[in-house]
Design a protein around this nucleic acid. Structure first.
Lengths: 242, 242
DNA sequence: TTAAATTTATTGTCGTACAAATCTAACAAA
DNA sequence: TTTGTTAGATTTGTACGACAATAAATTTAA
């Protein structure tokens, strides 16, 4: 009762504000990767906090790759690893269903949208590899392949974009897709069985489009291939699913 | 000279390994959000490190939202904020050109791919809003609008996916696009002026497709709208650009 | 039984100390 | 002059102890 009166977690600790102040300081100083930043002693004094507090803030930056330290040589600013944070906390078991479906939606969006990118950079060797992957697939019931084979195929597509960040994002999200596939298997299977739609594009068809088609055809085919997931993503079904 | 001889920073600190061990511990204990985790004293003792070292590791988790602490009540596991890490380090000035172009590529991919998503969730109100935004735009030379108007329009599209994570990603990447627009303005302008292509889809056309078209038409129109960016993204131009 | 006071447990912050690494400088040797 | 050695100084990494603030638990008082 009277929950609305409860103060929101008013816990801005010293470490939090030091972290923020330091980030502002880096920006305002126009520091670029490779530049030295003041020593711990200097920073602690300037901020008026104990060294331990400062170090807890710096520790966060170290994790993100924003600063690098070597004894005696001091600290230098580095280009941060923008995906380092995600990588450490992606665990489907502790992430809410809403968020997991968000990620599924992002995946589907990227895979449909990457057609142009693939056609921009595709090589003969890539296509050869894709064909090898597809030929090795053993098709199970209702047009499905094993999780490993599915992963291998889609990994290769992401790789073909030639965009390392997108490729890495794919690897980071991979456990989420596997989790969703396993946990919503009944819903998905039921949908496939009772849907009016009877034709789902296969990996083979996608490869064929990459070989002889164009980006627009790729998108349509990929959309078709991924269509079952939209069943999970529509607003009405989400209510039922969650 | 002789950079290849330089030793790689082989420094795994105690804090790093404590961080890793704790993450493993959380996973193996099958903890879920809301669960209590041992006190600092217990953890420090179990790990055999000083409390200060432990706290530097915990500080990282606190930043990512993975743990929440309140004095006396102890620490509890929380659903982490998967984008919290990115949000803190996105600053175009300290991120390499390669990475910035990666992000541009991701944006373009998402915007082309989100057609189905938009058609899945669009409402009359959304379309009304889009039209308002477009009608307020003042078109500058060569079909361009101001950065703010451009942002506002694309924000609305992301919002229409109904996917909060994708929407947030858009906001996070926004400074990157602005940076790229400003820094590659000469290349982009030259491309527009001398390209054989003379027709670039406008915001108005995109709205029209959302209103009366279908996802396939949306993708083609959006692709057309964003085509100038592929000029920066192709492998050959990237070499020149970087 | 209820209300107030006290105790206790736990995180937040501070300070000191020393170890480890490595840069600097001075000096010695070739 | 160049190279090698040694000693000292600087800076981060780790440990430990102390106390404040807070909130739960317990005891005491009305």
């Amino acid at each position: 009762m009277h929950n609305s009166l409860k103060l929101v977690n008013q816990s801005t600790t010293l470490v939090d504000s030091v972290e923020e102040k330091l980030r502002d300081f880096f920006k305002e100083s126009n520091l670029i990767p490779g530049d030295h930043i003041p020593t711990e002693a200097e920073l602690a004094k300037a901020l008026g906090v104990a060294r331990s507090v400062l170090r807890e803030a710096l520790s966060r930056f170290r994790m993100l790759g924003l600063i690098e330290t070597r004894t005696k040589r001091g600290m230098i600013l580095r280009e941060p690893d923008i995906l380092g944070g995600i990588e450490r906390v992606i665990d489907p078991r502790i992430i809410s269903k809403e968020r997991l479906l968000d990620i599924l939606g992002l995946r589907v969006t990227i895979e449909i949208g990457m057609g142009d990118y693939i056609f921009l950079n595709k090589t003969e060797k890539d296509i050869q590899e894709l064909e090898n992957i597809v030929n090795r697939e053993r098709v199970l019931e209702i047009n499905r392949v094993t999780v490993e084979e599915e992963s291998k195929f889609h990994y290769k597509l992401y790789e073909m974009t030639g965009n390392p960040t997108i490729f890495r994002l794919c690897k980071i999200f991979s456990p989420v897709f596997i989790f969703i596939k396993e946990n919503y298997d009944d819903i998905l299977t039921k949908y496939v069985l009772y849907s009016k739609k009877k034709k789902w594009s296969s990996h083979k068809e996608i490869v064929n489009v990459i070989k002889n088609g164009n980006p627009d055809k790729f998108r349509i085919t990929m959309k078709n291939h991924l269509e079952i997931y939209f069943h999970l993503l529509s607003k009405e079904n989400m209510k039922k699913t969650l």
